[in-house]
Amino acid sequence: MAEFAVAHARGPASSVVLAPGSTPAAPRFAECGNRPRAVVYDIDETVLLNTGANYDSAVRGDPPFDSARWARWEQGGAAKVEAVPGVVAAIAAIRAAGLTVVFNSNRDRSAAVPTAAALASVGIAGAVPGETLYLKGDVAPGSAKDPRRAAIDARYCVIAMAGDNLGDFADAFNDRALTPSARRTLAQSPTLDALWGNGWFLIPNALYGAWEGAGVDDLFPVDKRWSPEP
């Protein structure tokens, strides 16, 4: 991602944030114009590994997600995180090219200060709430990221985004009416082929995510199943 962002730091470009009213099935993107360029990162398991919280979950037998416990982690876990390998150098290179790095996370806005501290603890300083750090509740209620993406893209021209969940690119991917296979089909639409690895950068998260509620039939295509003979 860093190489892509640095290569596109200058010259004509368009945003990679879906324009208002467009969808992954029929995407539209606005030209950058004179807006300063930016790169948007999700935080959890994209920039920061929540090592302390994952340890806590492991020793407790991997129980269901506990929002109250996670809130305590957001407030008090700044010193127990690690950087995703390579991300510190990548962000440094992106900033050195004159691009702004903005973080768009579903951590709660009440945890803005400890979230910035967690980033700084791994060598990524300078996340400013409301400017380069956008959290749940900052722009609109709830966990939808489209309103925050729109607010960021109004201030900057976003030329690249990275995340560990399809919802880090468009809320349409999180439509609860879509089955996991339907989401996969939408993400693999020919209209989006040119974006993956070319403005949209998806980092697999094996720890948690929307896939947790999927069954065997959702996750494993029939023609890709294998089992040895007895």
Rank of each mutant, 00 (worst) to 15 (best):
P114L: 08
D175E: 12
A187V: 10
K136Q: 14
F169T: 14
A162M: 12
G126T: 12
N165H: 15
G137L: 03
N198Y: 07
R148I: 03
G126A: 09
V102L: 09
W200I: 01
L166C: 09
W200M: 00
T132P: 11
S189F: 02
P129C: 12
L195S: 10
A118M: 06
N198V: 06
L186D: 15
P204H: 04
A206M: 15
R176Q: 12
S121I: 01
A182G: 11
F173G: 14
A177R: 15
K136V: 07
D146W: 00
A210C: 09
L192P: 08
I203P: 01
R107Q: 05
A144F: 02
W196T: 10
S105D: 08
L202S: 04
A150N: 01
A150F: 07
A151K: 10
V139W: 00
T132G: 08
I159G: 06
L186N: 10
A118F: 02
P129A: 11
A210I: 11
V158N: 06
D175I: 05
A127Q: 05
T132E: 03
W196K: 10
R148C: 10
A160S: 13
R183A: 03
L192V: 06
V113Q: 14
G163K: 02
G199I: 01
G199M: 00
A194I: 07
A187L: 04
L119F: 04
S110G: 09
R183D: 06
P114R: 04
S105C: 09
S121Q: 02
A127L: 07
G199V: 00
T132D: 05
G126H: 09
T179Q: 11
K145G: 07
F103D: 05
N104W: 05
S110E: 13
S121T: 03
L192C: 07
D193F: 12
A187W: 04
A117S: 12
N165C: 12
N174P: 07
V122R: 02
D168E: 15
A116W: 02
L207E: 13
D193G: 15
M161A: 10
R184P: 04
A140T: 04
K136C: 10
G167M: 13
R155A: 11
Y208G: 05
A194F: 09
R149C: 05
C157P: 13
S143N: 14
R107D: 00
G167Q: 13
D175H: 12
I203G: 02
R148T: 12
G209F: 05
T191H: 14
A194K: 12
S105R: 03
D171T: 10
I124P: 04
W196H: 13
V122K: 00
A144L: 12
L202C: 08
Y208V: 10
A187C: 09
D138Y: 02
